[in-house]
């Protein structure tokens, strides 16, 4: 897919709890096609300590409204600056980057499970929506530290069943996503996950133990986002590969995780 350097315009900046914002962006021309799981590199302006772009996954694309959404967790100076963008502001982006999730084939399509942890739930909204549009029935398992870190539950529940865990028990089952009872009760046929690495590794372990295909979306520290600088590498069966270019989505069989 052709990568574009695009000046997007902020349409809405919605504050979701105290540490997250949802940026709804638009463009004067129709937005390019984007696959669930792809990401964008956002340029942060007027922040003296922010030198590089920030890789942010694409949360959702609303074709009817010509909108592209970015869900941003306020972590450091870069994301804090992005969170201050106001309607009408311009945001320079490079997109779409990387490869998306693969569509479930054959029996895998029967019961796909989408597991998100923290802000890692972001790409699951677009993926769930695409699966639903294709006539599949996605199930979501969303984990967070506490209720305040659970994002977009309303949107998720419109797409399919939603199961929740929080580490402090403030919402849903107390514990980690991999401890949720639904994993014992139901037989899922394909698992997609994005979130903190320990969580994805626990999910991958569950998938492998149960013989379920599993794709993970990695968030290695990046510079260029284009496969040029070779900074964001992950060790795979084929050696070091760039997460930005060969990923960010990988089938767990390709990775050398000790699971």
């Amino acid at each position: 897919m052709k990568k574009l350097l695009l000046d997007l315009i902020v349409k809405e900046n919605i504050k979701l709890h105290k540490n997250y914002v949802l940026l709804k962006m638009t463009h004067r021309d129709p937005l390019p096609s984007v696959l669930p799981g792809q990401f964008a590199e956002l340029r942060v302006d007027n922040a003296p300590n922010v030198f590089l772009r920030r890789p942010i996954s694409i949360n959702f694309v609303d074709r009817d409204k010509n909108e592209i959404w970015f869900l941003i967790q306020l972590v450091g100076e870069g994301t804090r600056k992005l969170a201050q963008l106001a309607p009408g502001d311009v945001l320079n982006t490079i997109l779409p980057l990387g490869n998306g999730f693969s569509f479930p084939a054959g029996d895998q399509a029967n019961k796909p499970l989408l597991i998100g942890g923290g802000v890692g739930t972001a790409p699951m909204l677009m993926l769930g929506s695409a699966l639903l549009r294709a006539g599949l029935k996605p199930t979501f398992l969303l984990g967070a530290r506490s209720e305040d870190d659970l994002l977009q539950l309303d949107q998720f529940s419109r797409l399919g069943d939603v199961f929740v865990t929080t580490e402090d028990g403030s919402k849903g089952e107390k514990g980690f996503v991999t401890q949720h009872r639904v994993l014992q009760k139901e037989h899922f046929t394909m698992i997609y996950t994005c979130g903190p690495r320990p969580m994805m590794q626990a999910v991958a372990r569950y998938a492998k133990a149960n013989g379920i295909e599993c794709e993970v979306s990695l968030e290695n520290r990046m510079a260029c986002g284009l496969g040029a600088c070779l900074c964001c590498v992950e060790k795979t069966q084929e050696g070091h590969v760039c997460v930005c270019k060969e990923g960010p989505v990988f089938n767990i069989k390709k990775l050398l995780w000790q699971i």
Binding site: P48, L52, N220, R221, A223, C231, H240
Partner: peptide, 21 residues
Amino acid sequence: GNAYPRMAETPMGMLNAVGLQ
């Protein structure tokens, strides 16, 4: 090349340790 992590952002710059991959 070197093991990950290979990059650190610094004020107005960055460090890399790609190691000629």
